[in-house]
Design a protein around this nucleic acid. Sequence first.
DNA 1: GCCGTTTTCGGCCCGACTGTTTTCAGTCG
Length: 569
Amino acid sequence: MEKRDVVGVLEEIALLLELKGENPFKARAYVNAARALEGTPEEIGDLVASGRLGELPGIGEALREKIATLVTAGRLPYHEDLRSRFPPGIFEILRIPGLGPRKVRVIWESLGVSTLGELEYACHENRLVELPGFGLRSQEKVLRGIELLKKHRGRFLCDVARREGEALLKALQGHPAVIRIALAGSIRRCSETSKDVDLVAGSGEPGPLMAAFVSLPGVEEVLARGETRSSVRLLSGLGADLRVVSDAEFPYALHYFTGSKEHNVAMRARALRRGMKMNEYGLFRGGEPVPCSDEAEIFSRLGLAYVPPELREGRGEIEAAERGEIPRLVEWEDLKGVLHVHTSASDGSATLEEMAEAARGLGMTYLGICDHSKAARYAGGLNEEQVEEQERAIDRLNRSLEGITLLKGIEVDILADGTLDFSDEVLARFDFVVASVHSRFNLPEAEMTRRIVRAVSNRNVRILGHPTGRLLLAREPYPVDLKAVLRSAAEHEICVELNAHPHRLDVDWRMIPEVKAAGLKVSINPDAHHPEGLADMRYGVGIARKGWLTREDVLNTLDLPDLMKFFRG
DNA sequence: GCCGTTTTCGGCCCGACTGTTTTCAGTCG
């Protein structure tokens, strides 16, 4: 069992213990152990094999044994026992905002409700109102929460979808029947969420390939199986489709199944206007195929410059391609450094040094440390003394580190009135300041807008962190007049964060053209809380590309001297 | 369930907010 799976089981045990009404600190211990595992760069198999698992902080005798069982046996009877005490639907109910383990337990025990659908029905019957600790308002809130969940049901975050997709790709790539194979669909377009994995293969023998696909180890259920298309559901709940065409048809199929639907409609209409017909099997003029060896040639045959998959959203990319105005989009290799990461000084799990090592390993030349400020108590926010302490630690490290420079930053909380969590004198000490909203998300739009405008007007602030506060598939953005915020940000020459954490991807790519139009640069920031989190910047690059950004539009493509010039305003 | 020590068990992050209640429990970040 992989580390990620072990972490998942430990977190689920914590939840189940809380549902059961166990000592909450016991549940916390499981969460702590999960964090400890996530935080160590070591392979979990090595830790178990070498008997060093117990050396991790928060893992004692009992957890050491349970984790070892999980890793070696792939399952844990303790976990399965716990799980069997509750209906499976209870996990979905727990995802309703405002419902924690205690309230869910009350609902389940007193109403016998065990699925989202039953709960919705119970709300409509006014049965929640009667329960201790509940009332009319909480019932309405639960209903709104169910609506939100239903809206997102069946969608998966980009990191999950990509991981699953790449695993399938890797498993099939070596198959002797495969000539070409690629990920298509929303994953290839770097969408922030996906419903399923789309794979397209070119092959002369679809039969054996399909047989291999439907019997891959991650497949839970085969939904459909045919010669050209098979559809399965993976253990994770994610769907996966494999379409097999001849090798000659591959470029057309890849384009067609990459989408988006809007892009394809526009492309087919264009083909018609030019006397051709286009579908997933080819491009035809008068019934005769127009041969293309790759996607670029298809675009070229239609009089278009190549359109990168990220741009294929039916938002003017075809018109731009016709004019030859598809920009050279920003690439991973353009990134020079990382801004906005956390360390164990606040709620991260790694030290300054470990984060620096990881950033250097990714080829980055600077790393901006941005732990939380003191108002973020839940996240172990730093006070003024701790900030000074960290400053000294960074100075010490910078003297010994080679190839990478640590920058002194802070993610300062924007307080409810738009003032910041540190005085201007303290903020002025940092190399740069990221200002973010972490509380009071429910202010009316006008007040929220005033609040953030005030924050970005502070001369010490250089970056506005996760500008809309959304959590993908979980929390809507807070109401805010983003255009007004962008105007103010432009006036004060600050930069807008593209938070690359897969749960955020905030600012939304649909808004990025407006950010650029306002004359603002975007900073692709991982908001990493552990070393592996730095690689999330890849998702940020994908989103930046969806927003039509070039290297020049992205702050952290600057070399350190130019970056510091920007920070000093 | 972990940890540190008071070496055998008590404390474990905590304040704001919400909706319930009439002084507080649960949830969230």
